[in-house]
Write a protein that binds this DNA or RNA. Sequence first.
DNA 1: GAGCAATGTATGCGGTGCAAACATGAGAGA
DNA 2: TCTCTCATGTTTGCACCGCATACATTGCTC
Lengths: 199, 199
Amino acid sequence: MSQTGSYHHGDLRAACLRAARELLEEDGSAGLSLRAVARRAGVSATAPYRHYPDRDALVSAVAAEGYRELAVCLAAAHPSPATPDELSAVAVAYVRFALDRPAMFRVMFAEPCDPTSEDRVAATAAISGYVRDIVRGVFPDADPEALSTAVWALVHGLAFLHLDGKLDASTPEVVADRVRAAVRAILAASPSAAARPGG
Amino acid sequence: MSQTGSYHHGDLRAACLRAARELLEEDGSAGLSLRAVARRAGVSATAPYRHYPDRDALVSAVAAEGYRELAVCLAAAHPSPATPDELSAVAVAYVRFALDRPAMFRVMFAEPCDPTSEDRVAATAAISGYVRDIVRGVFPDADPEALSTAVWALVHGLAFLHLDGKLDASTPEVVADRVRAAVRAILAASPSAAARPGG
DNA sequence: GAGCAATGTATGCGGTGCAAACATGAGAGA
DNA sequence: TCTCTCATGTTTGCACCGCATACATTGCTC
């Protein structure tokens, strides 16, 4: 496979995926064009269409890889978080993923694309389930559905606000500190603190 | 101004902005091209460049309008929220804004653009300050910096997850219910519930 | 009324996604 | 082993894009 000079590439599908990821890292999602992918794979401009019906399909395939890698990063931060602090570590990893691979993160979440792509739903379901399991363990008394949604949203929002320059992301430390502080603050803020200030 | 048939348009700058917003609503951000804007404004393809140095500048101008309108929507949901429930109402309004104007919301937050654009920073600072004031009022005992960051992130994340199809957004009611439940759940979830299950 | 600067136009370049027609060659069946 | 098929690449072409450059028009100032 992948014989130099042969008419057939051998594994163009995978080569496209690899090229797409490289281009994404180098030039952002704007640089991710099918033509650029084809050039990098050393193939004619329209060859990728044999494997991906359109640009969106290729982008979705890249995004699906991103979801899987995000899951790996989160698991690496802590295999089975059981306390709020350990949950914070996972939150930091999530935000870091977004900041370390901004273009990838945008492709995963900020692209108006078909959300019914099979690859995508499977991969995001995995993340969603992962968050739910953590939340169930850390807050056994809470409504797992509502709270895991909230936790994912909180972390996801932190990632985007940093990514968009709405929050200072100049160093990993300042980001990690802010994420931890935010998680701690919102978990500590009970409505009762407002209703009965003395409580 | 704006005489039909006259060489000079009269107020092309504003016309471009209006056209851009229309195109955004009709075709999403993909349909927002300077050429399309020019066509809609009834002007040559490159005329908009007299008023906007490049595409990003026009998009940023549109986004700045979006920020202002978001602020109006939030204020309309509740002028001065003072309880968690009233805060929830604002959260619902934020998510609804995103779902009602998905392309606009994406332009505001999901576009890899220069975050130092003066219009944008001013407008987002307004939102940030608005959230901080609310949080200060609702949770006087909390760290306002950390908690307002967390609240904005939570709501922002909810908006994106719905927008991306990660959460069911089929009807306004189901969305509103989920947003309220998530806000309530995360505010109720105190770390102590995990540390001392009996408390 | 002359001239200037602001505003709009015409043209052209290199890039894009994608459809349609064509070329190649690996592998199955004879 | 020979042939035929068809998955996989290529070529060509179209409409669109952002944007740079050179040019035309005209409202305003003096």
